[in-house]
């Protein structure tokens, strides 16, 4: 469990940014992961006063505020309308409803954990993240960037133009962290896929077709850890990519 001396509900994104420049301070998402650490914080910065808990349609983009909970993502009618059960599939396995009512999408994306279901799901969609200082940048770029002290405020998800994407994951128990996550979406010139739980952060692959994705996936490195070995993960990458692509080729969701 962490300790903290101060707790500030930021009055503006700029204030949050200012406070976050100090290394001893931290932005508080849902608190679920933060408490696993034993760090001593000076000030916890709470973004819940900034109306960042809304999911909004803005033209051909759906905007998620950083404080939108994973449960909101899971159950949003707006997301469901455009993406079918994609966003429910990438969130429903995360611990439990109570956890998902706490955990925020901003927290998940900013942490960029390698096993992150939401990051895996968002990566192939051509999303942008919005940061207080850096402004809007592609998620693909953000996902690979080193951690800095900027503050994530929004995630902008373009509406799917080429059919609904597909999400797959394998877990040892249904609400455990995933052994491997896989998301595939159609793009203008082929397919984009993300694999998480692999090694390091989730990474984006592009290919003309299924075989192209699988070939690339087989070249990636995979990790041995408590949940599974690298060979199994590599095997699953192939299985899940094939399954996801089969669903994409089959048109709508299975």
């Amino acid at each position: 469990m962490y300790t903290a001396r101060n707790y500030v509900v930021a009055a503006s994104p700029e204030e949050a940014w200012e406070l976050n420049q100090k290394k001893a301070n931290a932005i508080l998402g849902g608190g679920c992961w933060l408490r696993l650490g034993r760090r001593r914080y000076d000030t916890l910065i709470d973004l819940s006063g900034l109306s960042l808990d809304e999911i909004r349609l803005e033209g051909d983009t759906i905007s998620l505020g950083a404080m939108v909970t994973l449960r909101q993502v899971e159950t949003s009618p707006l997301l469901r309308e455009s993406f079918g059960d994609y966003f429910s599939r990438c969130t429903r396995h995360i611990v439990g409803v109570q956890f998902r009512n706490c955990a925020t999408v901003g927290g998940s994306v900013a942490a960029r954990f390698g096993f992150s279901d939401p990051v895996t799901a968002l990566l192939p969609l051509g999303c942008q993240v919005e940061l207080v200082k850096a402004g809007r940048i592609p998620l693909e770029q953000y996902a690979a960037m080193p951690y800095d002290r900027d503050v994530l405020t929004h995630i902008h998800i373009p509406l799917p133009k080429y059919g609904r994407p597909v999400y797959e994951s394998v877990r040892n128990t249904q609400t455990d962290l995933p052994v491997l996550t896989c998301a595939v979406a159609r793009e203008e010139n082929g397919l984009a896929a993300a694999l998480g739980g692999r090694s390091g952060r989730p990474s984006l692959l592009r290919g003309a077709d299924r075989d192209g994705l699988v070939e690339q996936a087989m070249k990636l490195s995979y990790v041995d850890n408590l949940r599974a070995g690298a060979d199994y993960r590599r095997h699953l990458a192939k299985v899940l990519l094939n399954r996801a692509c089969a669903q994409l080729e089959g048109g709508e969701q299975l």
């Binding site: 849902g30 679920c32 109570q98 009512n101 706490c102």
Partner: peptide, 8 residues
Amino acid sequence: PVLSCSVP
């Protein structure tokens, strides 16, 4: 419903 252990 939330996890009171995780919420400050």
